[in-house]
Write a protein that binds this DNA or RNA. Structure first.
Lengths: 164, 164
DNA sequence: GTATTAATGGAAATGGTTTTCATTAACAAT
DNA sequence: ATTGTTAATGAAAACCATTTCCATTAATAC
């Protein structure tokens, strides 16, 4: 059946083409990633995968994520809360650039796409200049605004007592 | 002696003013931080501090760094290699903005200050917009270009064998 | 179907960071 | 300078995300 490879984007095909085997675990993990817009940690993914395929272990999740990151299919982010987050770089829901708003209090992460147009020109111009000046092969960039989200501002205000 | 507080920047004074005690360990750590332009990890700092004051332990380094970060005197970065890096935000050598070039292969970090002017306008404009739209209190931002440094490009080329 | 070997799971190891707890020492009051 | 209070400390243990080990399983090629 030629239509069989009509999986969400061609992730499975890509994996095979590079000489890796397509397994139930890898497929499940790719599915989770393609269905989520959140930035999932390895454990988040493990919990979801494990729910639908209990045979799959955490180790496999880590190994698969490593593979996908190395293949450039998944991006890995460190937001400073001690666990890495992962995001699919392919498929319908994917975003090309990763510009985040991170709450330093509760680690809430917002991926904004507004205003990105304005940023990109400048960022790409600078990327080229840096690339030349420092002899870097730049493959990616990352912009993070750090601060407090609305909730944490509110709860801070509360715990600061009659602060005003 | 009134001239005694002429320490490099007024870090010690700042610590006391907030109600914390100035100790030998904290002073040593602040010294290390103010003397280095590198992005030091907790252990880097520990090794340097330990060399001049062997009584100071790694735990104290971590605790002091946490204090300084909370006081806003030190910035903490995660470059994805599993250990946090720290950088003084005060004193003569300090940089206001933290724009980095990170080698994903060897974790080499370059803090560039070129071209920053061009970026800042846009980044600050966007910061305000995001702040309003998402109700964030943004205190900081971070720009990272990721890729391969010159050395790692070269060594990749070598290990790829007759690749061209 | 069989062989090959990549992929896997579970347990153990690793390594950066945090916690615990008894001890020490900074600062304020004297 | 002495004393009292309690924050700060060091060492060891705990923690926890991630990696490694190794025997077993299963995906692909034949």
């Amino acid at each position: 059946m030629p239509g069989e490879q009509s999986k969400p984007s061609d992730s499975s095909g890509k994996i095979k083409r590079v000489g890796h085997r397509m397994t139930a675990g890898r497929e499940a993990i790719l599915n989770i990633l393609s269905q989520s817009t959140e930035h999932l940690s390895a454990e988040d993914i493990y919990i979801k995968v494990h729910a639908e395929k209990p045979s799959i272990g955490l180790t496999t999740v880590y190994r698969t994520l490593e593979l996908l990151v190395n293949m450039g299919m998944v991006a890995r982010f460190d937001f400073g809360d001690g666990r890495a987050r992962f995001e699919l770089l392919q498929g319908p829901k994917c975003v090309k650039y990763h510009h985040h708003l991170v709450c330093t209090e509760c680690s809430r992460i917002i991926e904004y796409s507004d205003f990105i147009g304005e940023e990109l020109n400048i960022l790409e111009t600078i990327q080229e200049k840096l690339s030349k000046k420092y002899n870097f092969l730049i493959t990616n960039h990352l912009v993070q605004y750090c601060g407090l989200c609305a909730k944490c501002i509110a709860s801070k205000r509360g715990s600061d007592q009659a602060g005003g």
